[in-house]
Design a protein around this nucleic acid. Structure first.
Lengths: 229, 229
DNA sequence: CGTTTGGCTTAACTTTTTTTAACAGCAAAA
DNA sequence: TTTTGCTGTTAAAAAAAGTTAAGCCAAACG
């Protein structure tokens, strides 16, 4: 879900830093950890990030100074501060610097995640969502428009057809798990939905059969595999 | 500074409500005060707001339920919750609903303002006037005036036509949930209102068909998606 | 005070999309 | 090999949506 969202984390405490790094990575973020504000600033300027989490108190360059520097070159990137104290003055100073949120230690991982998610929802994360499109032989598939351009004209895919094909194409040459797919598209992996999915697999096979390079292969008991030879 | 930023405040406590109302108005916001969630929802659907502040505990309809309803028709409008308790579970539930922030009573006016400002900084403040207006090809839509300028003259939209088109446009390229839309415009999502809505969808399609770049697509069982290519 | 008009709902019929049923074939376990 | 569960496929049924027209009601008009 947070795939391709890159995150800059500045934290001098080794333990907390590692903990956060690991946690956020398991949540799908690309995380870069910096041990102080100066290092963080260098990383920020030499690379590009979608989100910042800064400890307020750090050696060499503190979080506020870091934020101030960054705001001068990036007016929009979300910044969330971590602090040991829940001092109100600190809080206000942080917001004045263009902070997007503020979290006092100790905090729970879930709360941190909840806040990051809330902020990201607002921001247009432009991290290029690779649009699972397909272009093989005479077949051209446009998922956003739900169109499948075939040899003999264009077919408008129905919602389910499109959702399924999109998942298949996105997982080209990998097994698309049966249960997971059912939950993703049908919301529930019960027997009847399973049969419904099989019907849609048959439909897609029929549509795609004009290109012999494409195959939707079944992996017994596991799922389906979209193969392009 | 906050000129033209319209704010929906839902608070059942008369005193606090008045206090906030007055304070926020002096800070330049256009404030609408609702005494409970139901009234707030009606105000939200019949008008348009840039920011929401909801008390969690209110009679008739609580803040969370209100937020849930609103999120279905507006995925982006910032929501800040006020609550008596600083309970962590509450907090997480709020964020899960797409809250942007959370403030436990008692709080200071400055802190509230700081948080509103922080959130608004990262939201494209599209101050209500130009919300959801549409200008594609030869079609120009003015929601406030309920006018649709077409190639062959201007069409005055009826109330329902306008409400529906406005919601569609506001959720461009996203699915507009069927039930939520019915509740928002018709107040109830029963079968007949559903059929009525389908009739209006047909009307809008007919009106907009002169521009082939516009499409109102159905997502079976879910709702409609307004697409501009 | 009757008539007209405009906006909305209900009805009727059609088409599309999705689900369920039925049966056949195949794969893995017993 | 036999059994059992999973998949392939087609057809039928059901549910949702598209469309057009008729009906209803209240406000505006004559």
């Amino acid at each position: 879900m947070n795939q391709n969202v890159s995150l800059l984390l500045a934290e001098d405490d080794e333990n907390l830093g590692q903990l956060l790094h690991t946690f956020l990575k398991t949540k799908g973020f690309e995380v870069e950890l910096a041990r102080n504000g100066k290092i963080a600033f260098e990383k920020f300027t030499s690379s590009s990030f979608d989100f910042c989490i800064f400890d307020v108190m750090m050696p060499v360059m503190d979080g506020f100074t870091l934020a101030k520097e960054i705001r001068e070159i990036d007016r929009k990137v979300p910044i969330l501060f971590l602090t040991a104290k829940a001092m109100k003055e600190d809080k206000l100073e942080g917001f004045a610097l263009g902070a997007d949120d503020y979290l006092a230690k100790p905090f729970s991982m879930e709360e941190l995640l909840a806040r990051i998610t809330a902020i990201l929802r607002r921001v247009e994360v432009k991290s290029t969502e690779d649009t699972a499109h397909l272009k093989v032989g005479k077949i051209n598939y446009e998922p956003e428009l739900r169109l499948l351009h075939l040899e003999d004209g264009t077919k408008k895919l129905t919602t389910k057809e499109n959702q399924l094909l999109q998942l298949l194409v996105k997982n080209e040459n990998e097994i698309l798990d049966r249960q997971a797919t059912l939950r993703a598209i049908w919301g529930d992996d019960n027997y009847f939905n399973g049969r419904s999915m099989d019907v849609y697999i048959a439909k897609l096979r029929k549509l795609l059969k004009e290109d012999p390079a494409i195959e939707i292969m079944n992996v017994h008991g596991k799922g389906f595999k979209f193969i392009v030879k």
